[in-house]
């Protein structure tokens, strides 16, 4: 029941991930951060099998940072998305494939265009204006279909995100302990204050 959400707007990409670290039916931690920053303008959120998620995302994070240090320039979000897809695709046909679903969001360091990539454990890559992973897809994509606009502001983006999390609180059978929310803009990655304590009554 891990939740990953991503929304792009006029000049930003929002990435949100649930705070609950779960093992079976037990919540081990209520302040988990399921995101890693690949470079100044790119962020990934990940969910999937326990060990695989951290191992894979920190592997690509290390390689993205190595590239930035060697070349004194960052890869664009699109370039990183295709690199990550390549790594996941070769893992898919190995003896023990990584079982990780990812959302990769960022802002192009040159054009300042925001972008978001949806990537599942089969390494199917899709550039999208908004995305979700897991059960959240069934609840949130229809809300985003109706309320998303390609040139909305960050404040509007956070409002739509809140509509999504409200619906998840209303419908998901297990508490996901709120969301860590981060925004990528041309100035880099920024933590967003998000009210997790809001109580949503069931319909």
């Amino acid at each position: 029941m891990e939740v990953l959400l991503g929304i792009t707007g006029k000049d930003f990409t929002l990435i949100a991930a649930s705070k609950a670290a779960m093992r079976g039916a037990t919540i081990l931690k209520a302040s988990d951060d399921k995101t890693r920053q690949l470079n100044k303008h790119t962020l990934v959120a990940f969910a999937g099998e326990a060990g695989d998620t951290i191992q894979f995302s920190e592997y690509i994070q290390a390689n993205a940072q190595l590239y930035s240090m060697r070349n004194e320039s960052d890869l664009s979000p699109s370039a990183l998305a295709h690199y990550v897809r390549g790594e996941l695709a070769s893992s898919l046909r190995s003896r023990k494939p990584y079982n990780v679903n990812l959302l990769l969001g960022g802002v192009d360091p040159i054009t300042h265009k925001p972008s978001l990539f949806w990537l599942d454990y089969l390494a199917a890559l899709a550039p999208v204006p908004y995305a979700a992973h897991g059960y959240a897809q069934y609840y949130c994509l229809s809300i985003l279909d109706k309320h998303h606009h390609p040139d909305m502001t960050l404040v509007q983006g956070i409002k739509v995100l809140e509509m999504c999390t409200d619906e998840l609180k209303r419908r998901l059978p297990i508490d996901f302990k709120g969301m860590t929310v981060k925004a990528v803009t041309k100035d880099g990655v920024r933590d967003i204050e998000f009210n997790d304590d809001k109580v949503v009554k069931c319909a």
Partner: peptide, 11 residues
């Protein structure tokens, strides 16, 4: 077919 292979094979 399978989207991951569509990307892999086209690349």
């Amino acid at each position: 077919g399978l989207a991951t292979d569509v990307s892999t094979v086209s690349d």
